[in-house]
Amino acid sequence: MSGGGGSGSTTQTQALPGYAQPYAQQILQRGSDLSQQQMPQYGGQLVAGLTDGQQSAISGINNQAGQQNPTLNAANSAVQGAVSNASTPYQTSNQYIGQNVQASQNPYATMQNPYLDAQVSKAQTDLTNQYKNGTAAQTMAQFRNAGAFGGSAMQQYQDQQNTNLGNDLTNVESQLRGNAYANTQQAAGQQAALNTQTNLANQSNNLNATQAQNALNSQNYQNAQGNALAAAGLAPSLNAANYYGYQQQLGAGQTQQQTDQNQLSGQYQQWYNQAYSPYQQLGVLQSALQGALGNGSQGVTTSTQSGGSGWGNLLGGGLALGGGLLKAFG
């Protein structure tokens, strides 16, 4: 600080103590020398580039993404087939539909009994013989013993017996022929019932076979649809598997890249420590001087001189310069 004017003026200055002035001068000298030098510039590599593995993986992924994927194409076709309900390939036929079973024919249902006439003749002959040997003989003996043989009473009695014989012969024939007819009708009825049962069984079998075929076709269709959709659901996983090797290669390359980056960072740190060592040393010297002076305020002496002297201010500026250099490069 100065006051007054002219050559007779007095100047009040603040000066460092004597023990601090050599260090202040040293700070100024080092700062001056460093200011004359070019700032250190690191010429090495700072960022690690892609490794061969990364470049190979990226190239493979790009090629894979740009190509037609048969897995996804097949899945797309399967989905389209499921949506279009293309059920024709899943149709099956039942060979038993329409194959009717014929009822067995009873040969006695329409066949006349070839032995019927012989049976009738035999029965009538037996009755006639029984009449001759039994009834007729007894009648003749009866009337002969009574002394009325050949009379009208005998004739009437024989006529009645002959009528009875004729009725018996007719009844035997009617009974035999009626039984044969009844047997034929029974066989015909059984045949008709069998034919009806066979027709109903054929209808039931055809219905069951048709329902079984429809159920099988439906099940086949549902299975085919489900298989198609399940295959389509696996397509993304299968497609991702195509990239698995590249992803593994890319991960290994990233590990290598990080290792390279750590090495580059370590090399830069070594260069930095060496290149900026002078500035750090200057900062250490400045910090030591500031600590000794109590941040520049303790131990400073004040004097009044004639004329002007800026030495103290210059030293103070040197301290500020050293601190600025340390902050700029520390």
Rank of each mutant, 00 (worst) to 15 (best):
214 N>Q: 09
250 L>N: 10
255 T>Q: 15
248 Q>S: 14
170 T>L: 06
198 T>N: 12
166 G>N: 11
165 L>S: 11
174 S>V: 02
159 D>T: 00
185 Q>M: 04
143 F>I: 03
252 A>H: 01
226 G>E: 04
135 T>Q: 14
202 N>M: 12
143 F>N: 00
171 N>C: 08
148 A>M: 04
228 A>C: 01
205 N>K: 14
247 Q>S: 05
242 N>S: 00
149 F>E: 08
185 Q>T: 09
160 Q>F: 01
170 T>N: 12
175 Q>F: 01
248 Q>Y: 12
232 A>V: 08
177 R>C: 04
181 Y>E: 15
254 Q>L: 00
142 Q>C: 10
221 Y>A: 09
164 N>Y: 07
244 Y>T: 15
235 A>S: 10
142 Q>K: 14
197 Q>H: 05
198 T>W: 13
160 Q>S: 01
224 A>F: 04
243 Y>A: 13
163 T>H: 14
210 T>D: 04
208 N>Y: 02
172 V>D: 12
196 T>K: 10
151 G>S: 01
144 R>A: 15
155 Q>A: 08
232 A>R: 08
227 N>I: 07
239 N>C: 15
151 G>F: 03
160 Q>V: 03
182 A>L: 03
141 A>Y: 02
251 G>D: 15
244 Y>I: 14
204 S>F: 10
254 Q>S: 01
202 N>K: 10
250 L>R: 07
194 L>M: 01
159 D>G: 02
149 F>M: 09
247 Q>F: 14
178 G>P: 04
175 Q>C: 04
256 Q>R: 08
192 A>W: 13
211 Q>M: 06
133 N>V: 01
201 A>D: 14
228 A>G: 02
194 L>Q: 08
237 S>D: 11
158 Q>N: 09
250 L>E: 11
232 A>N: 06
153 A>G: 00
240 A>W: 00
252 A>I: 02
248 Q>W: 13
214 N>D: 02
200 L>W: 00
170 T>K: 13
194 L>S: 02
219 Q>I: 12
246 Y>E: 08
252 A>P: 02
141 A>W: 04
224 A>I: 11
167 N>T: 08
225 Q>M: 07
217 N>R: 11
154 M>K: 12
231 A>D: 08
195 N>T: 02
144 R>V: 09
188 A>D: 07
157 Y>A: 12
184 T>L: 07
178 G>R: 01
170 T>H: 08
159 D>M: 00
199 N>T: 03
184 T>D: 02
198 T>M: 15
208 N>M: 13
229 L>P: 11
219 Q>Y: 11
190 Q>Y: 03
145 N>D: 00
225 Q>S: 06
150 G>N: 05
189 G>A: 12
177 R>M: 06
142 Q>P: 10
186 Q>I: 03
162 N>T: 03
233 G>S: 12
141 A>G: 10
166 G>C: 06
173 E>P: 00
156 Q>Y: 06
232 A>F: 08
232 A>L: 02
204 S>Q: 15
164 N>R: 10
220 N>C: 13
136 A>M: 14
225 Q>E: 04
207 L>H: 01
197 Q>P: 05
206 N>E: 02
256 Q>D: 14
208 N>A: 09
232 A>H: 10
183 N>P: 00
139 T>L: 12
